[in-house]
Design a protein around this nucleic acid. Sequence first.
DNA 1: TCATATCTATAGTTTTTATCTATGCAAAGA
DNA 2: TCTTTGCATAGATAAAAACTATAGATATGA
Lengths: 308, 308
Amino acid sequence: MTLQQLKYAEAIDRYRSFAAAAEALDVTQPTLSAMVSKLEEELDVRLFDRTSRKVTTSLIGEKIIQQARKTLMEADRIKEMVADIKGGLTGEFHFAVGPSIAPYILPDFIRNYMKDYPDVQLSVEEMRPEAMIKALRDSDIDAGIASTGHICAGLYEIPLYTERFFVYLSESCQRKLPVFNPAELEHEHLWVMKEVQCLRESAFSFCKGRIGRRHVYEAGNIDTLIRIVDTNGGYTIIPEMHLPMLTPQQRSNVRNIEGDHLSLRKVSIYIREDYVRERMLNTIPDTMKKFMPSDMLERTLLRNGIRL
Amino acid sequence: MTLQQLKYAEAIDRYRSFAAAAEALDVTQPTLSAMVSKLEEELDVRLFDRTSRKVTTSLIGEKIIQQARKTLMEADRIKEMVADIKGGLTGEFHFAVGPSIAPYILPDFIRNYMKDYPDVQLSVEEMRPEAMIKALRDSDIDAGIASTGHICAGLYEIPLYTERFFVYLSESCQRKLPVFNPAELEHEHLWVMKEVQCLRESAFSFCKGRIGRRHVYEAGNIDTLIRIVDTNGGYTIIPEMHLPMLTPQQRSNVRNIEGDHLSLRKVSIYIREDYVRERMLNTIPDTMKKFMPSDMLERTLLRNGIRL
DNA sequence: TCATATCTATAGTTTTTATCTATGCAAAGA
DNA sequence: TCTTTGCATAGATAAAAACTATAGATATGA
């Protein structure tokens, strides 16, 4: 059993034709026939049914080729590793950022990244957490930045930074309290973002059980939310990185949250557990360092070769 | 890059010597030299430092060989799969059972298994959940039977059966209640097993928050626990499968628990997510069917090819 | 139904690669 | 310095992978 034989079988399964696979692999069709026969002989299993004019993969063949794909993938990662370790930082790098984080870091991030790593073909997209997990599992993206505290099977979390939450009070409800205590505003409306599960979950954590369903309304983004609060009264929760985006007038409506150990969210990089391009991965925290306040950044050393 | 080259490099790393690895692999030393040189040339990376008299693996080499091991493992699984699918049910099969389950199923299980699959070299051991998870991850065992409801990264859970919990009341505290309600016995002692985390966690779930720490004492196994309860008063929680082991006298001290949807525990088979010997795996539920009450067994169809 | 187009399998040959034996060369230890 | 130890190299040989040419099988269309 050789990697080549597995590659050949994989291609035949994909193209459902010896001739087409042969062309794609740039060998002749008899070579494929011979090599696959040899593999079948060694395993003593018929991988393909060649009766009639079309090739179909046998039931057992399906399973074996699925495993062959895994094997080939692991083998490919050896080359990826070498490229990552040896090569200059070039090639493609795809990552995704959660919607409650993207607006605050992406503008600076992209500017700094393109300056420092001009040879990397960067591709960034906004992605909701569930889609991000799927994309990571399927290797559609190399890394994701999100704040879901869940530990996901098969994924690895690398803490990036921690930020505080603040309360934004409506203009009308101007109590001149220095800090916010949920109990004091129990009768008011809490407005939270829709579609931003990671933010919402963290945001709820410090007032768990205190807020009934009827006090909660949802909006699409934080700017809208702030306008809703200004117009309708009540309050909302905003992450620390949103503060620079407020007008001085709005800034005066912001309050600290009492018991601030509960009002934090951790933002992390997520990668597949077996991701191998460590140097490339490090370009993310290295770029973050360029524009993020250093007191927010994590300083933990995690996993072989991944520093921060 | 061929599987053979990876195998050779892996062996050299393991034996830290070309000559020793060559002997182990049953080839000559020059063959190894040539093949590894070729691999190094293709990857354009020096895997081993041959300066001085001993061979050391380079830093990059370490990483690459780690990945090579993964690749070789995936390739091996192809052969495992074939053996599992094609071969009669032979070979070794190692599994572990949690301590709160083993006494109830193992005697019948082993008898039935050895009768139905005489060619399988069965090895069963009792193992606590944490050790089981580690053993599964390290491939020390093929499967584990336990009742931790946790979803563990990299592991796959296949429900096996569900059993109820009952309350065993002390002889002295004979209230002739038909069902048990935690509130009614709040002042009594609850005795629970030590070391049997999975059982304890499930057992606690239906009286969460109700039981203070001082009402809890721990014992090593359920028989002891029952004697403690008989002698000292109070009550304990026993799984359904323990009932046949009670004397008729003891049987009369058993009560149903009120709201029985909370007093269930699910017992499952755990395997590595990428476990490939499906036919072998199916011998577990197939054997269970032989002696377990059919109403306790799960009937769910899970994952390709694994039925129940 | 017979010819034809479209597949894969097989035969025979050539090229490439893996392995062997024999030997060289470098470094550590006596 | 001489020997031992251990990997590298050279050259020969056997194994295997790849090619060209062609046979054989099976649907499709006249």
